[in-house]
Simulated scan of single mutants.
Amino acid sequence: MAMETFAARGYGKASLAEIADRAGLTQAGVLHYFHSKANLLTEVLDLRDATDIADLGPERPRGLAFLRHLVDTARRNAEREGIVRLYAVLSAESVTDDHPAQSYFRNRYAGLRDLVAEALTEACARGETSEDLDVRGAAGAIVAVMDGLQVQWLLDPGAVDMAASTDGVIEALLASMRKG
């Protein structure tokens, strides 16, 4: 209930009254469990991450297999509009002063870039791709493409195939690395 409300209205316009009503609770009941609207938001974001981590399995794929996982994630996201909307809305809002999810998204983006950079470094070490690579720059570009595709897809789902576009960008990046 909270996830859908935050996704539809953003943090600032989402009301505890609406969230409580959708959950069949009173506002006091919601606050009893979460103590504040900001804590509720953090719990919703943590739940989203826990779901994605559970989908990954006991150990993350290594090297190029992790990049394939990103394509699979884009494919799954095309079936999870609410989660994609939540992430897109709240990540954009988090750049504003004093947003309660700002540190969450700052840490999330840093962690995602680290994971992609580590996978690219592994791919280089395994001989899966060229070692002549700015892995930090490539990682940031891949994360940016995926997030940009999500926004475009939310605005016009029929115009964007997130999985195919993510795959195409990763393949083009890998091809350019192989030429170097």
Rank of each mutant, 00 (worst) to 15 (best):
M3G: 04
R9I: 02
G12N: 05
A14Y: 07
A17Q: 11
E18R: 14
G29C: 12
H32F: 10
A38S: 15
N39K: 12
L40T: 04
T42S: 10
E43Q: 14
D46L: 08
L47M: 11
L47T: 14
L47K: 11
D49Y: 04
A50E: 15
A50T: 05
D52R: 02
I53R: 12
D55G: 09
L56W: 04
E59G: 01
P61M: 14
P61D: 12
G63K: 08
G63F: 08
L70G: 08
L70E: 09
N77F: 06
E81Q: 12
V84A: 15
A88T: 14
A88G: 04
E93F: 03
V95H: 00
T96I: 06
D97K: 07
D98A: 15
P100F: 12
F105N: 02
R106V: 14
Y109W: 01
A110R: 06
D114Q: 15
D114K: 15
V116I: 15
A119P: 00
C124P: 03
C124W: 09
S130Y: 04
E131D: 10
E131L: 03
D132V: 13
L133Y: 01
L133D: 01
D134F: 01
D134I: 05
V135I: 02
A139V: 11
V143Q: 05
A144N: 11
L149H: 05
Q150V: 04
W153P: 13
L155A: 14
L155H: 12
P157M: 01
A159H: 13
A163Q: 11
S165I: 02
T166A: 00
E171C: 00
A172Y: 01
L174E: 04
S176Y: 12
M177G: 09
M177F: 13
R178V: 11
K179H: 12
